[in-house]
Design a protein around this nucleic acid. Structure first.
Lengths: 129, 129
DNA sequence: AGATAGATGATAACGATTATCGTTATGTCA
DNA sequence: TGACATAACGATAATCGTTATCATCTATCT
């Protein structure tokens, strides 16, 4: 049985406290900064446990996996390739069309991930000069 | 200047010869099987070169990057989590809705990647018993 | 031929993640 | 309460895809 230990609760609290998208390292550092240092392996195990119970969500970016608050409504992500800013968005129609497309190909869908890359408003401004 | 060497041409030929989605290792082995062994670093460099010139496309899956024939029409992918089969699909409306959603968030879109996970027809059949 | 620019290959390095393993904490049952 | 089972923890080794390094090699141009 999987347990929600003190450390895992602390990880969950950190993640729930904002809309940030954390990687394992950042969380280890945040824990350390909060005075309760934690082994990196424990962070990974804790995150896997939390995710398997639906208490947090994750997105797999090219390089690393990032964790975020669980959200009842599924959403996808826009990543600024300049500053790393991640914006969330959800689009009912896109979801439905995806389901339809999968069905058409004979796929039983279990999940999906849509990541859009580009420049956020800030960075687009900065680079147009 | 980037050159299209004999080895790179051979990689391109292999990729163009099918709809398969190759990872670097598989390509190195295919080259080796074809009698022209190649260093793995050269494979990576060659693939990067081919991709930068738009001669091939790639998708970044959770674990590794896979390369495929360049296609004028952008398409996305459905991956069977059971057998690894990759199915392609393109959906004009989804693309347009993505653009609109990005614009709404102030993003200048440079690319995106939509990967859907699930069971292909075969594997869905096999597991329902 | 000599010079220059880029490609190649062996291999070391890197970075994220997972496995290992001895230790520690927690929960349960007698 | 004590003993035992179960899972978590932490340090660290291992894994794996990918990139960097660096000493050749190969074309191409003058």
């Amino acid at each position: 049985m999987v347990k929600l230990t003190t450390q895992r609760q602390a990880l969950l609290d950190i993640i729930n406290a904002s809309h940030r998208h954390w990687d394992a390292d950042e969380l280890a550092r945040a824990m350390s900064d909060a005075g309760q240092s934690i082994g990196i392996a424990t962070v990974y195990r804790g995150l896997a446990a939390l995710e398997s119970q639906g208490l947090i969500d994750s997105i797999q970016l090219a390089d690393k996996k990032r964790y975020e608050r669980a959200d009842k409504a599924h959403h996808d992500h826009m990543v600024c390739t300049e500053c790393g800013h991640i914006e969330e968005f959800s689009h009912q129609t896109i979801e439905q069309l995806q389901l339809a497309a999968a069905h058409e190909k004979g796929f039983t869908l279990t999940g999906h991930q849509l990541v859009m890359f580009g420049l956020c408003r800030q960075c687009a401004k900065g680079s147009e000069s």
